[in-house]
Amino acid sequence: MASHDFPIALPQGSALSNAIISLEQELLESSQRHSQAQLERRLHPRFAEVGASGRTYDREAIIAQLAQEPARDAGSLTVESPVAIQLADQLVLLRWRLLSGSPSERSSLWIHEQGRWQLLFHQGTAAARPLSPAGPKEAEPADAEFSVRWLRLSDADAVFEAFSSNPDMKRQGDADSPQKAESYVRALLEAGDRQQALAIAYRDRLVGLVCGTVDPENQNAWVWYWMNQNYRGRSLATRAVATLADYLFDELGLYRLELGLRANNPGSKHVAESNGFLHEGVERGKFLVAGERIDVHTYARLRTDRGSAVTPLPWGTQR
Rank of each mutant, 00 (worst) to 15 (best):
M1Y: 11
A2E: 14
P7I: 05
A9T: 11
G13C: 08
S14D: 14
I20E: 01
L23R: 13
E24M: 08
E24V: 12
E24G: 11
Q25E: 13
Q25C: 05
E26N: 09
L28D: 02
E29C: 03
S30V: 07
R33Q: 14
Q36D: 09
H44K: 12
P45V: 12
P45E: 10
R46Q: 14
F47N: 08
A48V: 12
R55S: 12
T56A: 13
Y57C: 05
I62K: 05
L66M: 13
A67L: 07
A71P: 00
R72D: 10
A74H: 14
L77K: 05
V79W: 05
S81G: 03
L91I: 04
V92N: 11
L93G: 00
L94W: 13
L94M: 11
G101R: 12
S102P: 05
E105F: 12
S108R: 12
W110V: 09
I111H: 14
I111L: 15
I111G: 00
Q114K: 11
Q118F: 05
A126G: 03
R129C: 03
P130L: 00
A134S: 14
A134K: 13
P136E: 15
E138P: 02
A139C: 03
A142I: 13
A142T: 15
E145D: 13
E145W: 09
V148M: 09
W150N: 09
S154N: 11
S154R: 01
A158V: 01
A162N: 07
A162C: 06
F163I: 01
S164H: 08
R171H: 13
Q172R: 06
Q172W: 11
G173N: 11
D174F: 03
A175N: 04
S177I: 02
P178N: 07
E182P: 12
S183T: 02
Y184T: 04
Y184I: 02
V185D: 02
V185R: 03
Q196G: 01
L198I: 09
A199C: 01
R203I: 02
V207E: 01
V207K: 09
G212N: 07
G212P: 00
D215R: 06
P216L: 07
E217V: 14
E217P: 03
Y225N: 08
R232T: 15
G233D: 10
L236H: 04
T238I: 14
V241F: 08
L244I: 11
D246P: 00
F249K: 06
F249P: 00
E251P: 00
L254R: 05
L254P: 00
Y255G: 01
E258L: 13
L259M: 15
G267N: 11
S268T: 03
H270C: 06
S274T: 09
S274I: 06
N275S: 12
G276A: 14
G276N: 10
F277Y: 14
F277T: 05
G281V: 09
G291H: 09
V296F: 04
H297E: 06
T298I: 06
T311D: 04
T317N: 02
R319W: 01
